[in-house]
């Protein structure tokens, strides 16, 4: 009796061990690459942030928090933080609301759905560097179509990308144009996922107007989607780089200096790796804070477990 009972136990152990070995083997390449290309560089950035390492010079020394102290008196970096914040504060909310609005319009209109979806999504699938070039032409102060159109109605158009008080707005317009379609598609998916019965129940329960049904059903049911769209919109806005590099190089007068562009220039143009590493840590801290905000603060409110 005892021997019969113990036999299967031994077999299960063998199976578990075999699975463990195979599992490790299958995951080994991924683990190795994560260590090499994510964990090690992360640690290196952390360490480099405390050094005065510059590419091209053989030696470097630890300088403690000097880089971080310099950061917060560096006018370029502070401008860069401020500009990134302003850019994000324009792009994220506008592209969220526009995305939601367009999704609701498309959902309510049976004609031309796929055409509209394609039209709004096209910028998402387009090469941003290339389209930024097109926008540069559109924004051109003298020969650009936008100002030409404004002249037709008697308005003198601004120097969109060339004036320091306009450049962030212009970049934000491109950013919004580029990201609305993405948000719209997420909202469309969210809308389709709402059970039709809920609207039927709302109607029977006395929700007469479209507005009532929106606040009783649509808006709460889009909660998780909205949370995700908010987070991804902010993160993508904070990561703005392509348009700045292509169109303004941070100018004029550092008016479009943004975080990633400043890091890029310090690290890869001036080759001040240590200093750029400290900036990178700040950039990462921003991302971490955003993620934590998503998971901790808002998640509780919108998840219907």
């Amino acid at each position: 009796m005892a021997s019969i009972a113990s036999t299967p136990v031994v077999l299960i152990d063998l199976e578990a061990e075999r699975q463990m070995r195979t599992g490790l083997l299958l995951a080994a390449p991924a683990i190795l690459l994560i260590l090499v290309f994510i964990v090690a560089p992360m640690l290196a950035v952390l360490v480099l942030g405390f050094t005065d390492f510059e590419l091209g010079y053989g030696s470097f020394r630890f300088v403690g928090l000097e880089n971080y102290a310099e950061l917060f008196s560096d006018r370029t970096f502070l401008a860069s933080l401020r500009n990134t914040a302003v850019y994000t504060a324009i792009v994220a909310p506008v592209s969220l609301l526009l995305g939601l609005g367009l999704a609701l319009l498309i959902e309510s209109e049976p004609v031309g759905r796929s055409f509209f979806r394609t039209a709004f999504f096209l910028p998402v699938a387009s090469l941003l560097v290339a389209m930024a070039t097109v926008w540069q032409y559109l924004f051109h102060p003298s020969i650009g179509p936008i100002n030409a159109a404004l002249r037709l109605v008697g308005v003198a158009g601004p120097n969109w990308l060339g004036a320091s008080d306009m450049v962030l707005t212009s970049l934000a317009i491109i950013g919004i144009w580029q990201s609305v379609g993405f948000n719209m598609v997420l909202f469309l998916a969210g809308l389709t996922a709402i059970p039709r019965d809920l609207y039927a129940a709302a109607e029977v329960d006395g929700a007469k107007s479209a507005r009532d049904r929106f606040f009783l059903v649509t808006w709460p049911m889009l909660g998780p989607t909205t949370l995700f769209v908010i987070t991804i919109s902010i993160i993508n806005a904070v990561k703005v780089f392509e348009t700045v590099k292509t169109l303004t190089e941070g100018g004029p007068n550092k008016a479009s200096e943004v975080l990633l562009f400043t890091i890029y220039r310090e690290g890869f143009v001036y080759l001040r790796v240590g200093y750029a590493s400290a900036m990178t840590m700040v950039f990462l801290a921003v991302l971490v804070v955003l993620m934590i905000a998503q998971y901790r603060l808002l998640d509780r409110e919108v998840h219907y477990g």
């Binding site: 039927a200 129940a201 109607e203 029977v204 007469k208 009783l216 059903v217 709460p220 049911m221």
Partner: peptide, 21 residues
């Protein structure tokens, strides 16, 4: 008339409870 004005109540197959309430 719209459903709200008919004074009828309905129980749905999926129950259709509002998940956020």
């Amino acid at each position: 008339l719209a459903p709200a004005e008919r004074n009828v109540a309905m129980v749905f197959q999926s129950y259709a409870l509002y998940p956020h309430l």
